[in-house]
Each structure stands twice: as structure tokens, then as C-alpha cells.
């Protein structure tokens, strides 16, 4: 029982990342009908927002501390971040420590802006072109973004620690009456899951309860009619693209402490997220979220030793296997709507 609980929890954080990326992909696909291969790159950009904010906050100046000497006997130089000298050591230290959550505030406007530029500058011209062209041009864009990041940040993963308050693990086992240390779960992953749930809920609430969201949903159902009613649907769809980019970016920001960001993390997630979207059903938002969590949890269950001893290697291929089976048995995906991308 405790083993099952542990795997369930382990699946949640990856599942949250899949769900967030897949949600953004589906938003773009459902509104604009574009298959965005650069979405993984947006996720990666989010993670590098966190890196950048952390670096900016810890820019420091050197002072000579007369009390200390270094190993050569010279007076030691001490680095103090500027924020510490501005806000005092206590407050400044806290700001540096909390740089990843602070990065969220930076990431939202940046990612929305990037989304706007992408849509207006490039993707707008591809609505009338075949899907293959859309895939190819966004694939090219993904390569370009990836290489630019590599140019600036190098090829190595950059560790981006979470705030000290969230270091360490939470012992679920004690809470539920199991042995101590049976079900241990890092705090930050809990935070990630909670954050993902909030973002997903926010997106759904936005679409469900605001006039803007209503118009967007109407546009997803029948773009032409909404346009004929005198609503500028293109503008709203552009905004949705920005929001989708922001969702991917936020997923990346918060993922930075879990996996040190490197320039190809986006591509690694993209392939899986596409599979998630297809399993959930092209164009279905609840389907994307459901499939994201489902595949994340399935992946973590299949990496249990018991299961691996029965079917060796299953943990590596489970997601693809599920996707193949679903596509063949239920071509529309779990919750796909009729008439979306059907041939």
C-alpha cells in the first residue's frame, strides 16, 4: 500500500509538467489549429527565466573583509549581493533564496510577450498552409531558440535551487500511519503539484467564467460564425497563444529546481507532451490534463522493480506503448471531440 502511494506521488510531479505543457499545446491547437513544435522550447525558456532571475538577484560586489584572511594570508574578499546591501542582509538573503518563485512574476509578462511575437510574427502566416509546413517551421524555430539559449548559457545543466524552506522531504508515511521513511516526498514536488493544479484551475476558470473565455470557447467551436457576429476573434486567439506560452513558461520556471535546466530539456518534454496531447484527444483541454497525469503516474508505476522484473524495459516505453494502443483502439483519443483533425 505504501509503495503504491509513493509511486502515485512520484508520478504527480512529472504528470503535472506533462499536463501543463499539453494544456498549452491544446490551447494553441484548439484555438488556432496550429501544431506547435516549438512549445517545448517555450517550456525551456521558462526554466531559463528562473535561471536568469536567480543570476540577476545574486549579482554581487566584492569588499575586503579585514577580519578574515584567505589561505595565502591576504585579506579575504567577500562577495555581497547588491540586494543584500540594499535591503539589509536578512531581507536580501530571503530575496535571493526565493528567486525561483520571484521568477514567476517575471516569467508571466516575458512569456506572454514571446507568445505574442511568435504568433504575430511567424505563425500568423501559416494558418492556410498544410499541417506539415506548420510542424516544420515551428520545428525550425525550436532549433533556433534552443541554440540561442545554448549560446548564452552553455550546454551544461545549471543548478537552480529551490528556496531553503522547501528543501528536504515530507514524510507522508507517518501522517497516514505507515512506518516512518516509507513514503518520503520532497516538499518542492508537492509545491509543484499544487502550483500546477492552481494554474490548470485558473485556465479553466478563465475559459469557463469570463466573457472573454466564453467568446474563445465559441471561437474554438465555430470560428467563422463568431467572426460573422462582429467579434474580432483573431485578436482573442492571439491573446490565447500568449496565455498558452505563459502556461508552458510557468511550468518551466517551477520545474527548474527539480531538474537543472539545460538547453535540450524542452525537446525532451515536447515529444512526450505531444504523445500526451494525442492520448488525451486533439483539441480537448480536460483530455490533455487527464492524459498528462495519467501518463505521468503510469510511467512512475512501471518503473517499480516488481513490474520491471515482469516486463523488462517497460518503464522506458510505457508512454509510447499506451499512445500506440490508444491511437489504434480509440483514434480520437480519450476525450477527443468529433471532427477535430480527422481524416
Amino acid at each position: 500500500m505504501d509503495v503504491i502511494l509513493l509511486q502515485l506521488l512520484n508520478g504527480l510531479d512529472k504528470g503535472s509538467a506533462y499536463a501543463l505543457i499539453a494544456l498549452g499545446l491544446t490551447l494553441i491547437f484548439g484555438t488556432l489549429g496550429v501544431v506547435n513544435f516549438a512549445h517545448g522550447a517555450l517550456f525551456m525558456l521558462g526554466a531559463f527565466c528562473a535561471v536568469t532571475v536567480q543570476r540577476l538577484l545574486s549579482i554581487s560586489f566584492e569588499t575586503i573583509d579585514p577580519d578574515k584572511v584567505d589561505f595565502l594570508g591576504n585579506p579575504a574578499k567577500v562577495k555581497t549581493p547588491y540586494v543584500e546591501s540594499w535591503f539589509g542582509p536578512e531581507m536580501g538573503g530571503a530575496i535571493v533564496d526565493w528567486s525561483v518563485p520571484i521568477a514567476i512574476l517575471f516569467a508571466i509578462p516575458i512569456m506572454i510577450a514571446i507568445g505574442f511575437i511568435m504568433e504575430r510574427g511567424l505563425i500568423k502566416h501559416f494558418y492556410k498552409r498544410p499541417h506539415a509546413d506548420q510542424i516544420l517551421v515551428t520545428f525550425g524555430l525550436a532549433i533556433v531558440i534552443q541554440e540561442v539559449i545554448k549560446q548564452f548559457y552553455g550546454a551544461n545543466p545549471i543548478p537552480t535551487p529551490a528556496p531553503d524552506a522547501f528543501k528536504g522531504s515530507f514524510d507522508f508515511g507517518v501522517l497516514l500511519g505507515f512506518d516512518p521513511n516509507a513514503v518520503i516526498y520532497p516538499y518542492w514536488r508537492l509545491v509543484y503539484f499544487g502550483f500546477a493544479a492552481i494554474v490548470i484551475a485558473a485556465v479553466f476558470a478563465f475559459l469557463q467564467f469570463t466573457t472573454f473565455g466564453m467568446v474563445v470557447r465559441a471561437g474554438m467551436a465555430d470560428r467563422e460564425t463568431v467572426g460573422l457576429l462582429g467579434i474580432n476573434i483573431d485578436k482573442r486567439f492571439t491573446i490565447m497563444f500568449g496565455i498558452a506560452a505563459a502556461v508552458a513558461g510557468l511550468a518551466g520556471v517551477m520545474y527548474a529546481p527539480i531538474n537543472s535546466p539545460n538547453y535540450h530539456m524542452g525537446m525532451d518534454f515536447l515529444v512526450l507532451s505531444f504523445v500526451v496531447v494525442v492520448v488525451g484527444g486533439m483539441g480537448s483541454l480536460p483530455g490533455a490534463v487527464l492524459a498528462g497525469f495519467m501518463l505521468g503516474i503510469l510511467e512512475s508505476f512501471s518503473s517499480m522493480n516488481v513490474i520491471k522484473s515482469i516486463v523488462p524495459g517497460i518503464d522506458q516505453i510505457i508512454i509510447y506503448l499506451v499512445a500506440i494502443i490508444i491511437l489504434l483502439v480509440r483514434p480520437r483519443g480519450l476525450m477527443g471531440r468529433k471532427g477535430v483533425m480527422e481524416d
Partner: peptide, 11 residues
Amino acid sequence: GIYFSILTLAF
């Protein structure tokens, strides 16, 4: 279409 691309990618 896109499903074919993803299936081959998955394989």
C-alpha cells in the same frame, strides 16, 4: 496527418 507523424515518432 499529425497522428502518423506522432505514431512514427513514438515507434
